[in-house]
Protein backbone atom coordinates (compact mmCIF):
# COMPACT_ATOMS: atom_id res chain seq x y z
CA UNK A 1 0.00 0.00 0.00
CA UNK A 2 2.83 2.37 0.93
CA UNK A 3 4.55 1.72 -2.39
CA UNK A 4 1.29 2.32 -4.20
CA UNK A 5 0.80 5.68 -2.49
CA UNK A 6 4.40 6.60 -3.10
CA UNK A 7 3.98 5.84 -6.78
CA UNK A 8 0.85 7.97 -6.96
CA UNK A 9 2.65 10.87 -5.28
CA UNK A 10 5.69 10.51 -7.45
CA UNK A 11 3.58 10.38 -10.62
CA UNK A 12 1.74 13.56 -9.67
CA UNK A 13 -0.96 15.08 -11.84
CA UNK A 14 -0.02 14.78 -15.48
CA UNK A 15 -2.92 16.51 -17.12
CA UNK A 16 -1.89 20.08 -16.44
CA UNK A 17 0.64 21.19 -17.36
CA UNK A 18 1.31 18.54 -19.95
CA UNK A 19 4.66 16.81 -19.54
CA UNK A 20 7.27 17.02 -22.23
CA UNK A 21 9.94 14.41 -21.53
CA UNK A 22 12.62 14.26 -24.20
CA UNK A 23 11.32 11.05 -25.74
CA UNK A 24 7.84 12.30 -26.48
CA UNK A 25 6.82 13.21 -29.97
CA UNK A 26 5.64 16.63 -30.96
CA UNK A 27 2.08 17.11 -29.74
CA UNK A 28 0.17 20.35 -30.08
CA UNK A 29 0.02 20.63 -26.30
CA UNK A 30 -1.04 24.27 -25.90
CA UNK A 31 -3.92 23.46 -28.20
CA UNK A 32 -4.83 20.52 -26.01
CA UNK A 33 -5.14 22.76 -22.98
CA UNK A 34 -7.22 25.22 -24.95
CA UNK A 35 -9.51 22.39 -26.05
CA UNK A 36 -10.02 21.36 -22.46
CA UNK A 37 -10.95 24.91 -21.54
CA UNK A 38 -13.26 25.26 -24.52
CA UNK A 39 -15.08 22.06 -23.67
CA UNK A 40 -15.64 23.30 -20.14
CA UNK A 41 -16.67 26.77 -21.28
CA UNK A 42 -19.15 25.52 -23.86
CA UNK A 43 -20.60 22.71 -21.86
CA UNK A 44 -20.12 23.71 -18.26
CA UNK A 45 -21.52 20.25 -17.58
CA UNK A 46 -20.96 16.62 -18.39
CA UNK A 47 -21.18 15.14 -21.87
CA UNK A 48 -21.84 11.45 -22.24
CA UNK A 49 -20.59 9.44 -25.20
CA UNK A 50 -21.58 5.99 -26.38
CA UNK A 51 -18.84 4.51 -28.53
CA UNK A 52 -20.02 2.11 -31.24
CA UNK A 53 -17.53 0.03 -33.15
CA UNK A 54 -19.41 -0.79 -36.32
CA UNK A 55 -16.58 -2.54 -38.17
CA UNK A 56 -13.22 -1.05 -37.29
CA UNK A 57 -9.87 -2.84 -37.28
CA UNK A 58 -9.68 -1.89 -33.57
CA UNK A 59 -7.00 0.73 -34.31
CA UNK A 60 -9.47 3.59 -33.80
CA UNK A 61 -10.55 2.04 -30.48
CA UNK A 62 -6.95 2.16 -29.26
CA UNK A 63 -6.90 5.94 -29.71
CA UNK A 64 -10.35 6.37 -28.19
CA UNK A 65 -9.08 4.47 -25.15
CA UNK A 66 -6.08 6.80 -25.05
CA UNK A 67 -8.46 9.75 -24.53
CA UNK A 68 -8.85 8.57 -20.96
CA UNK A 69 -5.17 8.28 -20.17
CA UNK A 70 -3.84 10.84 -17.69
CA UNK A 71 -2.41 13.05 -20.46
CA UNK A 72 -5.70 13.66 -22.26
CA UNK A 73 -7.89 12.92 -19.23
CA UNK A 74 -11.20 13.32 -21.01
CA UNK A 75 -13.18 11.90 -18.12
CA UNK A 76 -11.53 14.35 -15.75
CA UNK A 77 -13.11 17.08 -17.89
CA UNK A 78 -16.62 15.77 -17.46
CA UNK A 79 -16.78 13.87 -20.73
CA UNK A 80 -17.72 10.32 -19.95
CA UNK A 81 -18.12 7.11 -21.93
CA UNK A 82 -21.34 5.33 -20.98
CA UNK A 83 -22.54 1.77 -21.45
CA UNK A 84 -25.93 2.45 -23.02
CA UNK A 85 -26.95 4.66 -25.93
CA UNK A 86 -29.99 5.59 -23.81
CA UNK A 87 -27.62 7.45 -21.48
CA UNK A 88 -25.68 9.13 -24.25
CA UNK A 89 -25.62 12.64 -25.75
CA UNK A 90 -23.28 11.59 -28.50
CA UNK A 91 -22.46 8.50 -30.57
CA UNK A 92 -18.82 8.09 -31.52
CA UNK A 93 -18.85 5.60 -34.38
CA UNK A 94 -15.87 3.79 -35.95
CA UNK A 95 -15.40 1.47 -38.87
CA UNK A 96 -16.77 1.07 -42.33
CA UNK A 97 -20.21 0.00 -41.15
CA UNK A 98 -20.37 -3.72 -41.76
CA UNK A 99 -23.60 -5.20 -43.07
CA UNK A 100 -23.57 -7.43 -40.01
CA UNK A 101 -23.54 -4.34 -37.75
CA UNK A 102 -25.86 -2.16 -39.82
CA UNK A 103 -29.00 -3.09 -37.91
CA UNK A 104 -27.33 -2.84 -34.50
CA UNK A 105 -26.03 0.65 -35.34
CA UNK A 106 -29.47 1.82 -36.46
CA UNK A 107 -30.99 0.49 -33.24
CA UNK A 108 -28.32 2.20 -31.11
CA UNK A 109 -28.99 5.45 -32.96
CA UNK A 110 -32.75 5.12 -32.45
CA UNK A 111 -32.21 4.49 -28.73
CA UNK A 112 -30.10 7.61 -28.24
CA UNK A 113 -32.36 10.40 -26.94
CA UNK A 114 -32.75 13.60 -28.99
CA UNK A 115 -31.04 15.96 -29.42
CA UNK A 116 -28.14 13.70 -30.28
CA UNK A 117 -24.80 14.16 -31.93
CA UNK A 118 -22.96 11.70 -34.13
CA UNK A 119 -19.21 11.80 -34.74
CA UNK A 120 -17.79 9.48 -37.41
CA UNK A 121 -14.26 8.38 -36.57
CA UNK A 122 -11.35 7.34 -38.79
CA UNK A 123 -10.80 7.17 -42.53
CA UNK A 124 -13.05 4.09 -42.52
CA UNK A 125 -15.88 5.78 -40.66
CA UNK A 126 -15.58 8.92 -42.81
CA UNK A 127 -15.11 7.01 -46.05
CA UNK A 128 -12.17 9.21 -47.00
CA UNK A 129 -8.65 8.75 -48.28
CA UNK A 130 -7.01 5.57 -49.49
CA UNK A 131 -8.11 3.58 -46.47
CA UNK A 132 -11.70 4.77 -46.79
CA UNK A 133 -11.63 3.59 -50.41
CA UNK A 134 -10.12 0.23 -49.42
CA UNK A 135 -13.00 -0.43 -47.06
CA UNK A 136 -15.64 1.40 -49.10
CA UNK A 137 -19.04 -0.13 -49.78
CA UNK A 138 -18.93 -3.75 -50.90
CA UNK A 139 -20.94 -6.92 -50.35
CA UNK A 140 -20.05 -6.84 -46.62
CA UNK A 141 -19.94 -3.13 -45.75
CA UNK A 142 -22.05 -0.01 -46.16
CA UNK A 143 -18.90 2.16 -46.16
CA UNK A 144 -18.95 5.48 -44.30
CA UNK A 145 -21.08 5.91 -41.17
CA UNK A 146 -23.09 8.63 -42.94
CA UNK A 147 -24.38 5.99 -45.35
CA UNK A 148 -26.31 4.50 -42.43
CA UNK A 149 -27.09 7.27 -39.90
CA UNK A 150 -26.82 11.10 -40.08
CA UNK A 151 -23.37 12.36 -39.09
CA UNK A 152 -22.58 15.77 -37.54
CA UNK A 153 -18.80 15.75 -37.57
CA UNK A 154 -16.12 13.64 -39.25
CA UNK A 155 -12.72 12.93 -37.73
CA UNK A 156 -10.48 11.43 -40.41
CA UNK A 157 -7.17 9.72 -39.73
CA UNK A 158 -5.95 6.16 -39.62
CA UNK A 159 -6.33 6.14 -36.73
CA UNK A 160 -7.01 9.79 -35.77
CA UNK A 161 -4.84 10.96 -32.86
CA UNK A 162 -6.42 11.67 -29.47
CA UNK A 163 -6.00 15.40 -30.12
CA UNK A 164 -7.87 15.10 -33.42
CA UNK A 165 -10.60 13.16 -31.64
CA UNK A 166 -10.93 15.84 -28.96
CA UNK A 167 -11.11 18.50 -31.64
CA UNK A 168 -13.87 16.55 -33.40
CA UNK A 169 -15.89 16.06 -30.23
CA UNK A 170 -15.62 19.77 -29.52
CA UNK A 171 -16.65 20.70 -33.06
CA UNK A 172 -19.76 18.56 -32.67
CA UNK A 173 -20.65 20.24 -29.38
CA UNK A 174 -20.24 23.67 -30.98
CA UNK A 175 -22.66 22.74 -33.72
CA UNK A 176 -25.12 20.99 -31.41
Amino acid sequence: MISLLKRILRTGILTEPLPAPAEQGAQPEPELERLHDDILAILGRALTIREVDAGSCNGCELEIHALNNPYYNLEGRGIKFVASPRHADMLLVTGPVTKNMENALRIAHDCTPDPKLVVAVGDCGCGCGEVGALFGPNYATCGAVENVIPVDVRVPGCPPTPVALMRGILAAIRRG
Binding site: D53, G55, S56, G95, P96, T98, K99, N100, M101, A104, L134, F135, N138, Y139, A140, T141
Partner: peptide, 11 residues
Protein backbone atom coordinates in the same frame (compact mmCIF):
# COMPACT_ATOMS: atom_id res chain seq x y z
CA UNK B 1 -18.91 -13.65 -34.13
CA UNK B 2 -18.67 -12.26 -37.64
CA UNK B 3 -20.04 -8.77 -36.87
CA UNK B 4 -16.72 -7.24 -37.96
CA UNK B 5 -16.78 -9.06 -41.30
CA UNK B 6 -15.91 -6.44 -43.90
CA UNK B 7 -14.94 -8.48 -46.92
CA UNK B 8 -11.18 -8.16 -46.41
CA UNK B 9 -10.33 -11.31 -48.34
CA UNK B 10 -12.33 -10.23 -51.36
CA UNK B 11 -10.54 -6.86 -51.37
Amino acid sequence: LGYQHKGVERR
